[in-house]
């Protein structure tokens, strides 16, 4: 975290909020191909999700029994499954699910995590102590296992998977925000804002939060990838998506039994998961390099 050296009051509010100059990130990106590869993969994922209805040759649930278990061809680039459903369409609609679910989960984790983190880091004292200890206990639970227990309790579906993963994801955001807020709130420009009578809420939202955006962006990006993988994992073991949802993990699980006879069933969703997760990770790493250490 860069420390603003100039006396904050003499700089404009914009400069206070974004103390880093714009030139440095741009220079860094040129040296980080991972950022561009990641951006490309993630861009492709979002594009597939957005344009699935246009790109997919058939509706994802259309069964054409006469076309069952067709290997990849021009007509069905990813082949067809045991019901004669086009795998390309299913994987494309799966991208839609993956994006929706990942964003929903990360939002669910980030909003309370960031809010509580800011609160704890800004106020110090017992608020911080209580919240931090609760979050520590929370984090001590093995994440995915806790999600499995929650889903088993609430019944398997994508929404319970989102809820469970959101709940276990919150402490990560809490810890980052809290530490940033702890160090940030002692800085001069915050003190200055306080001294001229800016309200606590405004100080947090307008001055503290914007200054920790870059590490947060990195964390969100990395978390999107991790969440995508976790949701696929839950669906793979039958605790996430329910048929006929074309969730990638569920597609992979269905294709696993046909590895020898119909390899394409597992290949397409497997590749989709791998490339998306790699994409998010490269993008996250690249952003970290470009935006400076968080």
């Amino acid at each position: 975290m860069n420390v603003p050296t100039a006396f904050p009051l003499r700089r404009g509010r914009r400069a206070m909020a974004r103390p880093r100059s714009a030139a440095r990130p741009r220079r860094r990106t040129r040296r980080t191909p991972s950022l561009w590869i990641g951006a490309f993969l993630v861009g492709a994922l979002f594009l597939a999700a957005l344009l699935a209805p246009m790109l997919a040759p058939t509706p994802p649930d259309l069964m054409q029994p006469e076309l069952r278990l067709q290997p990849p061809s021009l007509e069905h680039p990813f082949g067809t499954d045991i019901f004669g459903r086009d795998m390309l369409s299913r994987v494309l609609y799966g991208a839609r699910l993956a994006v929706q679910v990942s964003i929903a989960t990360v939002t669910l984790a980030a909003i309370p995590g960031i809010a509580l983190g800011l609160l704890a880091g800004f106020h110090h004292g017992w608020t911080d102590q209580v919240l931090a200890r609760i979050m520590d206990v929370w984090m001590a639970f093995p994440g995915l296992l806790l999600a499995v227990v929650l889903v088993a309790r609430l019944g398997p579906s994508l929404s319970t998977a989102i809820l469970a993963l959101g709940v276990i994801g919150a402490p990560t955001f809490f810890r980052l925000t809290r530490s940033s807020a702890l160090s940030g709130s002692t800085l001069l420009y915050i003190e200055a804002a306080r001294s001229v009578g800016v309200s606590n809420r405004r100080t947090i939202v307008r001055h503290l939060l914007p200054n920790m955006l870059s590490p947060l962006i990195v964390l969100v990006t990395l978390n999107l990838g991790a969440t995508l993988l976790a949701v696929s994992g839950l669906s793979f073991i039958g605790l996430g998506a329910q048929p006929p949802q074309p969730e990638w993990g569920a597609l992979l699980a269905a294709g696993r039994d046909y590895m020898d006879t119909a390899w394409w069933l597992a290949l397409a969703p497997g590749l989709a998961i791998t490339l998306s997760v790699i994409g998010f990770n490269l993008l996250g790493d690249g952003l970290r390099d470009a935006l400076g250490r968080g």
């Binding site: 649930d61 045991i82 019901f83 019944g155 398997p156 579906s157 039958g238 329910q242 048929p243």
Partner: peptide, 26 residues
């Protein structure tokens, strides 16, 4: 298996007459 596949097929057949079906596998 093959309960998931059978349920999926039933879901499609019932959807064809206009009865929406959800599947819950435990």
């Amino acid at each position: 298996p093959p309960n998931g596949d059978v349920a999926t097929m039933l879901q499609a057949q019932l959807a064809a007459i206009g009865v929406p079906i959800e599947i819950q596998q435990l």
